[in-house]
Structure formats: C-alpha cells, structure tokens
Simulated assay, not measured.
Amino acid sequence: MKLTTRRTTLATLAAIGLLAGAPAWAQTAYPNQPIKLVIPYPAGGATDTLGRLIAQKIQENWNNPVVVENRAGAGGTIGNNFVAKAAPDGHTVLLAITALIQQPPLMQLPYDPVKDFQPITRVAISPSLLAVQPSDPAKDLKGFIAQVKATPGKYNFGSYGAGTSSHIQGELLNTQAGLDMVHVPYQGAAPLVAAMLGGQLPAAFIDSATARPHLKSFKVLAVTGPSRMPALPDVPTFAEQGLHSYEPLGWFGLLMPAGVPKPVLDKFAAEAARVLKLPDVRERIEGLGLFVGGETPEEFAKVMRSDAEIYARIIKEARITLK
C-alpha cells in the first residue's frame, strides 16, 4: 500500500510539473480573446475586401470576435511591422500582398519578411497582363516589341507605383527584349486604369482584378503566370512567347508572427482552408477577377521563398529603384 501510494504521489507531482512548464496555448483553448486581422492598406481596396470577407466567416464559425484593423502607410510596411512585432499567440494575423517579399531589395525594412512571419495560406491569387491601346497595330507581343524597337524613345509604360509588381514586370520586359520604355508610376491601380482608358498611356501592366471590368477596352498581349487566364483563353503567357521569370503571380496571403505554436497555426490554417472552400466565398473572390488560394502553410512558405528569389534577381538585373 505504501509503495502504491508513493508511486501515485510521484506521478501526480510529475504531472503538475509538466503542466507548470507547458506553454499557455496548451492550458487554454485557442482562440481565447478577439483576433486582430491587420490590413496594411486603406479600407476599400481589394486587400481590405478580402480581409473582411475572411474575418466575417471565421468569426461566425468560431463565435469569437475577429476585428479588422487597417494600419496603412509606407507601402504596407507599417502594418507588416506591427504584426511582425506582435505577441506570437495567434491572436494577431496579417493579410499581406506580394509587396511583402518584393520590398527587401528596394528598401531598408524593420523586419525580415521570411524570418519574422509564419505563412498560413494564400487567400487569393492574381495574374497580371500587358495591356495596350485598342488602336495599337501590334497583333501580339512579338509585334509590340518590334514597334518599340523601331521607334526609340517613343514608348512608355504605366504601373501602379514604383517598386510594385507592374513596375518590376515592365522593367523585366525592357531588360529581356532590349527596349527603352520609360516607366510612368501612378498612385495606385485606379488612376493607372483611368490613364489607359483616357488614352494617355500606350501600354501598362495591370493586375487581373483591376483589369477585369475593362478587358474589352484594352488589347491584351500577354499574361503572367504558368497558364492562361480563363477570362482570356486566347491570350498567351509571357513564357509561351519566349520570355522568362514571369511565372510568379500576385497574391494576398495570411501570415502570423514567427514563434506562434504549431497547434495554433494549424488550427487557424485549417479554418482558413475551410472558409476558402465555401461556395459564396469562392464566388466572391472569383468575381473580383482572382483565383482562390488555399495552400498549406508549408506550400505557401515555398511560394514565398521562390518568389522572393525571382524578384530579387529581377530587381538587381534591371537596376530597379524607388527613385
């Protein structure tokens, strides 16, 4: 009896010791407080729209507040940095865009986009396209390149800002095709499209979500990514037309600060995957001209690393700066 009692006492003490050393997430259910979903851009844009859609669905299913907080400024770096420095308990989440991994070669950042975040999944994916005026005589990308070469100093291309995907894609075309198109940056996608519709630009690189309502107003010569866009089945990719490094697609991705316990990350990732499979969510995302995401954290991490390497190489070779 004494031996049995002693063993029981030791087992109890060991259990208490293990619980005392266990992390907080193992002692309390997650989530146990409101979740903050940080949007590093102003309200009203595509990132904000997607964030509020995801937040609403998670809040309804978990019966736990999911508060969307817009922390705009400095090209998204203010909101990104807030999440990078947040407590790694799973209650602060970032909805970032591709700029997160494009910025390191262009500016000094107070965080490391790879080391300071844990990827969860891509919410939506966006190809880009090279659009020219309907009156442009070029029938394809090869014809457009020939025109630009034949008239040095005559062509420019528009983007929705210095250092953005559209800027990088335009300079990549200059580098690979030996062109001299001048970059004309706009303050966002909306004014860029307005300039194209007004005939003020001969060409522009535009994301699919922004271009979708205006596809009949442009002549589209090529699309980025590994495959053609369903909305433009007759338009070949850049790769099909002999150019490389246009494989990366734009994305809107969910991330948490580094150090979040794996069970917490996995639980949120599973919920995000569930939400992205809902018919009404998929319809809303596709209605914006985007593809639905939904990869695992490991798959998204691989995409981030690959994209970061490609963009860093392009930025260096094309000598792209924010000036």
Rank of each mutant, 00 (worst) to 15 (best):
M1R: 14
R7Q: 14
T8L: 14
T12V: 15
L13R: 09
L13F: 10
L19C: 12
G21C: 14
W25S: 05
T28N: 05
P42T: 10
G44L: 00
T47M: 11
D48H: 12
I54P: 06
K57T: 11
W62G: 06
V66H: 04
E69D: 15
A74M: 12
G75S: 13
G76R: 06
I78W: 00
I78F: 00
V83K: 03
V83G: 06
D89I: 09
H91Y: 08
L95V: 09
A96G: 03
I97K: 01
I101N: 14
Q102P: 02
Q102F: 01
Q103D: 15
L106D: 06
M107Y: 01
Q118R: 07
V123Q: 06
A124S: 12
I125A: 00
V132T: 06
Q133D: 03
P134H: 06
D136M: 08
A138G: 14
G143M: 09
F144K: 12
A146L: 11
Q147T: 08
A162I: 00
H167T: 13
E171A: 07
L172A: 03
L179Q: 04
Q187M: 07
A194W: 00
M196K: 05
Q200R: 14
L201C: 03
A203C: 02
A204S: 12
T210C: 03
S217G: 02
K219L: 10
V220Q: 01
T224A: 12
S227N: 07
E247A: 11
L249Q: 14
F252N: 11
M256Y: 02
V260Q: 04
A270L: 13
E271C: 04
A272F: 08
V275R: 03
L278Y: 09
I285D: 00
L290G: 00
F291A: 15
T296N: 10
E298T: 13
F300D: 13
M304H: 02
D307F: 05
Y311V: 05
A318H: 05
R319H: 15
R319T: 05
